[in-house]
């Protein structure tokens, strides 16, 4: 199941050149770009692991891209995304976030059902990779 989160996720995966162009756009807007990775792309999992601190004061996408490449190398089977944070007054939020790597095979989610008090049923979505890893 293809994970669709952030920008561009309904498009075919971005090529490296396209990623660089997007990152360059972010840098030109003065946003701080950061790289994050996770093996649990649950929609409620907002906080992915940070690949190093956000990068400030960069002028060229090559610097960010070397970090993306390093992260991909270290975690070839994780999801990797790029966030661009706008610190200007009134925004102070992530302005752009997009996935730059997904595992070769995306396992999708499993639905767990738990019996609860009375005859209540509780449901939880869990990413399958989480189970296979453990």
């Amino acid at each position: 199941m293809r994970i669709t989160q952030g920008a561009f996720s309904f498009l075919p995966d971005l090529t490296d050149a396209q990623i660089k162009a997007q990152v360059q756009y972010c840098l030109e807007q003065g946003w701080a770009v950061s790289v994050e990775y996770t093996d649990d792309p649950h929609p409620r999992n907002n906080y992915w692991e940070m690949w190093g601190p956000p990068m400030f004061d960069l002028k060229d996408a090559a610097g960010v891209f070397s970090e993306i490449a390093a992260c991909r190398n270290t975690f070839p089977n994780h999801y990797v995304r790029v966030n661009a944070f706008d610190s200007s007054r009134g925004w102070e939020t992530v302005r752009l976030s997009f996935i730059v790597q997904r595992p070769a095979k995306e396992d999708g989610f499993r639905l767990d059902r738990t019996e609860w008090e009375g005859r209540t049923q509780r449901y939880a979505l869990r990413h399958r990779a989480q189970f296979e890893a453990r």
Binding site: G52, M55, D57, L58, D60, G63, V64, S66, E67
Partner: peptide, 14 residues
């Protein structure tokens, strides 16, 4: 290493 890399990243493209 992180310090040097940080500077290098800032200098990229220049």
């Amino acid at each position: 290493a992180p310090k040097t890399k940080e500077i290098l990243k800032k200098a990229m493209g220049g």
